[in-house]
Amino acid sequence: MATTTAPEAVRLAELPPASGRAGFGGALRSEFTKIRSVRSTYWTLLVLLAISIGLGAAITGGTAAHWNQMSPGDQASFDATQASLGGLFYLGELVITVLGAMVLTSEYSTGMIRTSLTSMPRRGVVYAAKAVVFTCIALVVTFVAAFISFFLGQALLASTHHGATLSEPNVLRAIIGSVLYVSICGLFAYGVGAMIRHTAGTITTVIGVLFVIPILAHLLPQSWFWDIHRWLPSSAGEALSTTVGPPPEHLFSPWGQFAVLGAYTAVLLIAGGILFRKRDA
């Protein structure tokens, strides 16, 4: 272990002279070090990849196996792109919210936030740097998950001759849309995390909003459901991933739906940022 006697004098090498001030660049490097140096990041991202790709493969593989039992109508309306991406935007979304929440809430649960804000007291900078680093990592990983899911799914659907290709209409939009949708769900959780500051509370809240509210909304009288459906943050996933048939009824366009989610997320990020700056750490 360590030496037992303290140094007689604290002799450290001279630091290079300081110029400028601590800012966003240093904060970005620091946040990247933080996120890459804990195991939970790797576990979460591994689970994201496994679940997205695995579930996508299960849906497409299962469909292929039962293709001949399906009615011609079902076969015609089958959305091969959406099926292959289903794992990503149904369950991948769930996993990314855990990571998005933990980026900030883990600092509160461990007490690290006090150390972080002592070394970099300009909180807006810390908040933005965390969001940027998380977003970049989420985009890269969901991008990989989306393309693997898509190509694996189409390969499994080969026997049906109903697989999709990138050049078909709406397919690329669905893939990129899923990447953006899942990533922004993570940012949604990040904003909520800044307000709630507890991991479990944040994840519960986000799951409630993104998963449970849509299910409850289905229980409403149908005309009410149609009225609120387009205003739910989770509807963006459905709109963006649909490539076959007429656009879903009572929804805005896919990117319009994405804008609704984006607006909610922006509000949460701003509110979270204000609280992060104003509250005692």
């Binding site: 490097r29 620091s30 946040e31 070090t33 939970s40 461990t110 007490g111 150390t115």
Partner: peptide
């Protein structure tokens, strides 16, 4: 007040950065 899952080196590195 540190993240226990982070190594001593990385903890100090993220502060230094």
């Amino acid at each position: 007040a540190v993240h226990g899952g982070r190594s001593a080196y990385n903890h100090l590195l993220c502060l230094a950065q």
